[in-house]
Amino acid sequence: MTIELEKVSKALHGKPVLQDLTLDFSTDTCYAVTGAKGSGKTTLLRILMGLDTPDSGRVRLLGDYKYSWLTCGAVFQRDALIENLSGVRNISVIRKLTSDKAAREELVKLLAPDRAELPVYKLSRAERRAVCIVRALSVPADLLAMDEPFEGMTDKERAAAFSYIMDHKGSTPLVIAGRERYAELAVFKSIPL
């Protein structure tokens, strides 16, 4: 199964960000989207998530997808967490099938148990990203799109988060966007913007 971007162009505030971009995202493959600030990484992910529509070109699903639209497990650039809910609750509310207990079991793999029940506004940047990563992987998805998922993390935290992602992603194509080219992403297919 493949997600195909065909000659996608997008301008923001009159400035072209993506121009005639043609890409394929295939099952079982990981992609690292790298580029400077403003190079279009977030725009590309937003188009894949269905939050932005391209000015020209199209996104096509080739293969046996369950829906005619793309379902995404997403880590947003600015977290998009419900601030007064705990990390556990932020994960369990997005899917009826995920209980608090199941969410807690997953979250404590990346977060200290006593931190998992705190409102997320009390968490550090790295801890918030951990909640976002677990949330993204807790839903069934055709694509995992993660925008700067390791931001604010130490090397040790990043290694743990990366390991968690790889263990839980299954065959779903994974797209990680970021300014930094971390060592863990060396085996990923590179998409420079």
Binding site: M49, G50, L51, T71, C72, A74, F76, R78, D79, A80, I82, N84, L85, V93, I94, R95, K96, R135, V139
Partner: peptide, 23 residues
């Protein structure tokens, strides 16, 4: 951002109402 999150994760309307709109 929360509306976009709800859209991407396809949160059911009841859940959006309970956790986003009413609060």
């Amino acid at each position: 951002e929360l509306k976009e999150m709800a859209k991407v994760f396809r949160m059911p309307f009841g859940t959006r109402l309970l956790y986003l709109y009413l609060p």
